[in-house]
Design a protein around this nucleic acid. Sequence first.
DNA 1: TTGTGTTTTATTGCCTCC
DNA 2: GGAGGCAATAAAACACAA
Length: 335
Amino acid sequence: MESGRLIFSTAGSGAGQMLFLDCGAGGGGGAMFHRGARPVLGMEEGGRGVKRPFFTTPDELLEEEYYDEQLPEKKRRLTPEQVHLLERSFEEENKLEPERKTELARKLGLQPRQVAVWFQNRRARWKTKQLERDFDRLKASFDALRADHDALLQDNHRLHSQVMSLTEKLQEKEATEGSDGAAVDASGLPAADVKVAVSDAEEPAPAEEAAAAAFEVQQQVKAEDRLSTGSGGSAVVDTDALVVGCGRQHLAAVDSSVESYFPGDEYHDCVMGPMDHAAGGIQSEEDDGAGSDEGCSYYADDAGVLFADHGHHHHHQHADDDEEDGQQISWWMWN
DNA sequence: TTGTGTTTTATTGCCTCC
DNA sequence: GGAGGCAATAAAACACAA
């Protein structure tokens, strides 16, 4: 098409509607529509310079002198009143049904096409803003998570120190008692691996108490380790890295990265989700505070100590015995 | 006044839905 | 296949600093 004007009538409101199509500009924005009838809300002067009216009468459009004088016609912005009405309409509903489009066009003295284009552009702007808002929200969330992660790392270091200290004390105590011939390791397992075995004894020995305390601390350290060493500090933790055995006879925390004392197939049916430290609970991707995996629920108490509820059985890691059947629970520790 | 960045109006081409 | 939506893009209009 040559650069120039294409005039045609439209099916718009009222007789004498004319469209003027200037194809000279090329590219995306070359074509301009000019409405034949005078607008209800016409263009006005404002800002800088004198503005020519975008819309003209059919007579003006047909006057050659007008063309010579006005060409090349330029884009004209909508008046504040037009924009205001369009905005109000957009707030009510951001999609435009044909009837509403026609009605708006009639009210505003615009082509229905212009109204449709305005809505389209407005939706695009809204989407951009929405993306910015979403980004800000996600960034804030990420920053908070990172701060939490940093705090956990610090806690982790502190707890590691405590574990080291307690372990040293325990070893000293064992060495002293061993040299006196008063204490004998009855478990048959290497002393470096097994710190304590809680049996039917009513009162734990002092060494056992220390071991239990050290164990509890280490449990938390291990759990936090996994959280803090996840993918770039993400809150989404690989559940495979956090496994709790839920057998009938035993309850034990097993670190899959460390060689387990237990047969793997005995505890495969209970997988621990990540612990939500802030909430004092464990979160799966779908649950808040508690989750389940194939009949095995898991949660944490106020101290962040892990529970596992396998079916109707309820195990607590620092309980001395099973609440339901009183079966013996052994404490295990690893280095 | 001018150069430059931003906003607004509009087209084009592709896609989806009926 | 036509209508409508959307992404990409062009270009005019506008804002603003130097």
